[in-house]
Write a protein that binds this DNA or RNA. Structure first.
Lengths: 244, 244
DNA sequence: GCCTGTGAAACATTTCACAGCA
DNA sequence: TGCTGTGAAATGTTTCACAGGC
């Protein structure tokens, strides 16, 4: 349901292991292009963001070096997992010593693509959309909120933080003008798919949805979902089990 | 970091495998008590909530029966995965026919423990906390928001939806009085761990945190985390890879 | 005949344990 | 000596493919 693949190169590496020989015999011509698209396991990518947070916090505390043990503890994972994760982005530590906080921070950020320019548009200026627009946590890591849209005439035109709510009628134009390359959907279920489609048509390839509905997106579009109700239900399952 | 274990049995078998005999040997008298604490794989639990959403939507459309293929499509997973997931909670379909929408809905809800009484308290009445308090998605699935706390004197006493913001000084008392058994933390990073500790001390075992920080909780406490910045960073990684 | 339920295979992730280098 | 980096083992998840009942 989500894999596709087209990288016909034997990038060579551990888990991500690229299909050894197999397919691809057809085209190519180059023996071994080194462009090799890394490929970090999804589970590791998610954790890299945690390490980043922990490293930022350490920087704030003036710490300059950290061991895998300590960083793992601060991130809530095992040290073995942490070392394995870091190995996917290369060897950036010193044996017998540990990791340089600042340097590692930059390495992870680079691996995640955070050095690029990310412009985020929020669709939906209801309670959640407004809260997101005002949330400072985005800006801090290079995500700039460039626009916020809504359909309600009473909300359009309002100021939220440094932004003015735009009419969703002008969604496509707005996305193009602001060069938004990510969209956050903060919408009720019944309009989410429609807005999602428009956003996709406008060429946006990265979408974060808070809508309580399963959205369909075409291949090549990256969709991540956050749903409070879902999280509570998962908690409920575990809590119930404690009681037996 | 999260496993514990105490089952000294060679459980051997597929994922969920019910602990064969194990604990409780004390009572019963039957050779094979069927009470057997299920055990659904975490990945499957997360997806069961998606099926629930899809089933609700189908009910709304007046659909009474659904095939694994159709339900999987609506939920965004493969039909094999769906059938496997459902098999963890028992056989509730009819071969050659499909699943009864209403019946399956109830079976999943029961398996997730949604028939119990969940009372949720929100700690933090900032932008996000207020948005969550007003979000209708909770109530719909048996989660009742029973209190919301904040430390800011300007916010304490305000009305949000049907609730009045309580002073976080009275957190412990408030949790006890309202019999809250779940807590949502909607707090800035610098106070999140402290509040988390207080909530844990008060006996709450299920916590959903929106704070952009890794929280430490003792064994036996269930913590789930949602972080917008993390989600965007993961999107950034994938988006960057599309460019190569 | 058709679609569910499920062993078994394929694949992915995590943990172990230790070699290797500062 | 001490901690990283990483093969190999253990564990978990997804997919395959087909037996089995309606």
């Amino acid at each position: 349901m989500k894999k596709k693949e087209l990288s016909p190169l034997p990038t060579g590496g551990k888990p991500p292991v690229v299909v050894p020989s197999s397919a691809q015999g057809a085209l190519d011509g180059y023996p071994a292009a080194e462009q090799a698209v890394k490929q970090i396991p999804p589970a590791a990518v998610a954790r890299l963001t945690l390490y980043l947070r922990a490293l930022n916090s350490l920087t704030g505390d003036g710490v300059e070096r950290v061991s895998s043990e300590a960083l793992a503890e601060a991130s809530g994972v095992s040290s073995a997992t942490l070392r394995k994760d870091l190995s996917y982005i290369g060897s950036h530590g010193t044996r017998g010593v540990g990791y340089e906080v600042d340097y590692l921070n930059r390495q992870i950020a680079a691996a995640l693509g955070l050095t690029l320019d990310w412009k985020v548009a929020i669709v939906g200026a209801g309670n959640l959309g407004r809260a997101l627009a005002r949330y400072g946590g985005f800006q801090s890591r290079g995500f700039e909120i460039v626009a916020i849209f809504d359909a309600d005439p009473l909300i359009v035109g309002q100021e939220i933080g440094f932004l003015r709510v735009s009419d969703v009628l002008g969604l496509e134009t707005g996305l193009a003008q602001t060069r938004a390359n990510m969209v956050v959907l903060a919408l009720p279920a019944h309009v989410a798919q429609e807005m999602c489609d428009r956003v996709v048509s406008a060429g946006v390839k990265s979408i974060l949805s808070f809508a309580p509905i399963t959205l369909q997106v075409p291949e090549g579009v990256n969709l991540r979902k956050v749903d409070m109700a879902t999280e509570l239900q998962i908690l409920a399952y575990h809590a119930q089990r404690l009681v037996d």
